[in-house]
Design a protein around this nucleic acid. Structure first.
Lengths: 162, 162
DNA sequence: GAACAACCATTGACGTCAACAACGATTGGT
DNA sequence: ACCAATCGTTGTTGACGTCAATGGTTGTTC
């Protein structure tokens, strides 16, 4: 398909009708990738003052929905490697936001439980979380934000099994 | 704000009415973050066979829209650090997909130009790129994909200055 | 009930990546 | 002719994902 031009690079004008020429933001996938990066940066910046990062926040958030989970479950549900969970729980336990408990039936497992301070932390950072989302979806109306959220949720639940 | 309960962690049931209890995927920002990660993984997996990664692909994609750009411009437009651009252009130049040229007016600048092989590469990987987006937006209808893309575009252009 | 495979949390190593400081070469302004 | 700013480049640091390996524990199978 390459024309008879020389094999070396040429700064000739591009053909804007070609399908591979639709610009950077033509792919929804790439768009999601870039916005995900920006969203993570904003989140981490907002959480920076408390010394935690987005990963810790996600873990706390999940713990608030299940009241206690072994680290293996955290690894599967959050999509982080088991070795990563260790460090995250270490950090959170050091801050008394979380507590490791022995599992009654299986002495291999260690149940991670949200501590009272962890609940308070979630309460306090909820506002910051809202700020990030607002800043991110700034150019959208309230209805558009809802539809965007609903669509993203459908896409996210594709593999997350609810 | 903490109730009179003991200061240690308690596995008591959570109050589902509290605003900080809306589950993991309640925030659009966090949702974007997670989907961005997945999208990047899918993209990189699709591009893996060609030895390049998503960053290279984005750079090629941008070069196809501007017919030559100094590395500084690539850094600003793609959002990557100038030092990152160096490595990316190195890789692409090694594969003859891109060419560095001296800028006629400014001997500091080096204009990066898409080579003919780079154009062919974009043509060939366009299909793979479509596959990734299709897999990502699988549970959505065609109309929903369009609206999702439009909404993401609005959000993305917030700071990207078009 | 003894051997064996599977599982859980943990540690360590390796490669990737973003962010930052610093440098040589070059440019433009005064 | 000086001085600040710019461009590409190198190097460093810290966060992060992935994988292999280990100690302790469980369940299974003969």
């Amino acid at each position: 398909m390459t024309p008879q031009g020389p094999p070396t690079a040429q700064a000739r004008p591009v053909d804007a009708d070609e399908p591979w020429m639709r610009g950077l933001h033509a792919d929804t996938g790439y768009l999601l990738y870039r916005l995900g990066l920006r969203s993570g940066q904003l989140f981490n910046a907002a959480l920076q003052e408390s010394g935690l990062r987005l990963r810790h926040y996600a873990l706390l958030r999940y713990l608030a929905t299940v009241e206690g989970a072994p680290q293996r479950e955290l690894s599967v549900r959050l999509g982080y490697d088991p070795s990563a969970i260790v460090g995250l729980v270490d950090d959170l336990e050091r801050l008394r936001l979380v507590e490791r408990r022995p599992a009654p039936a299986d002495r291999r497992r260690r149940i991670v439980v949200l501590a009272e301070a962890g609940r308070a932390y979630l309460r306090d950072t909820d506002e910051a979380s809202h700020r990030v989302t607002d800043e991110l979806t700034g150019p959208l109306t309230a209805e558009e934000r809802d539809t965007l959220h609903a669509l993203l949720l459908r896409v996210a639940e594709q593999r997350d099994e609810g």
